[in-house]
């Protein structure tokens, strides 16, 4: 006996009540629960939908869907990092390594040549962070719009929005750039900073303009309900 559409909807509500807010994860769990319930109802026609559901849910263990949510989040982050790293490595191979070296050299030269390093740090950090903030604001609006139109949240989008955790490193870069601003930097530190700054900027650029769009495209290909806007 196949479950009805209202029963399937009930399963979506059930997963939501058990802290699975994201449609991509809900879909898989709903199908799993539905299969288990259908099998129970077929083997024992006296079983009710509700008791079969509780029995299936128990199989997920004492913390319910907690493990699945945690591991799925970790797995998505891992996939994000894996892709990011793949593209990042590309900037250390010809021909892109020329751009990488040129950017490091340019940043380093500006830091040592200009009398005040703030002339470099202020515009470059502004360029590095203001543009992504605007892009992310646009992303946030897009996610909100999708949620409003379809009433669906995607775990995928949450990971993309946080750039796989990369966003948390912004603060560190700003702190290093503007730490002890009155003290001059030695050449070695200027060089190390230039390398770190350019590498971080590259990672940021790859995350926003390459990895995130790619993951959204993949998701749209995989999931018929994913609205790719």
């Amino acid at each position: 006996m196949k479950l009805t559409q209202p029963q399937i909807q009930q399963l979506y509500t059930f997963t939501q009540k058990h802290y699975v807010e994201w449609y991509d994860l809900q879909t898989e769990l709903v199908d799993h629960l539905a299969n288990g319930i259908e099998s129970q109802l077929a083997n024992n026609p006296n079983t009710t939908f509700e008791s079969a559901l509780q029995a299936e849910f128990k199989k997920f263990g004492v913390i319910g869907f907690g493990d699945v949510i945690e591991e799925k989040t970790k797995a998505l982050n891992k996939r994000y990092h894996h892709l990011l790293w793949g593209y990042f490595k590309g900037f250390f191979k010809l021909p892109k390594i020329i751009i990488t070296l040129f950017l490091i050299y340019g940043c380093f030269q500006l830091l040592i040549v200009l009398p005040n390093r703030l002339w470099v740090l202020v515009p470059s950090t502004a360029l590095l962070f203001v543009i992504p903030v605007l892009v992310m604001y646009k992303q946030f609006q897009r996610i909100k719009q999708i949620q409003k139109e379809t009433n669906k949240k995607w775990l995928f989008d949450t990971i993309i929005f946080q750039l796989g955790g990369l966003i948390h490193f912004i603060q560190i870069v700003i702190q290093v750039a503007f730490f002890n601003i009155n003290q001059s930097w030695c050449t070695t530190f200027s060089f190390v900073f230039s390398v770190g700054f350019v590498l971080f900027a590259l990672a940021f650029f790859i995350a926003i303009y390459i990895v995130s769009p790619k993951l959204r495209k993949d998701m749209a290909k995989q999931h018929p309900d994913y609205k790719f806007a």
Binding site: V30, V68, E71, K72, D225
Partner: peptide, 29 residues
């Protein structure tokens, strides 16, 4: 167990060992 299966599947997917496709079967995805 379900609690072990799905994390394993998601991990293998993240490692690029598995590909995913979602299809409508009966009245669900």
């Amino acid at each position: 167990t379900e609690g072990a299966l799905y994390p394993a599947l998601h991990k293998l997917e993240a490692e690029g060992l598995l590909d995913v496709e979602v299809a409508k079967v009966d009245n669900r995805l």
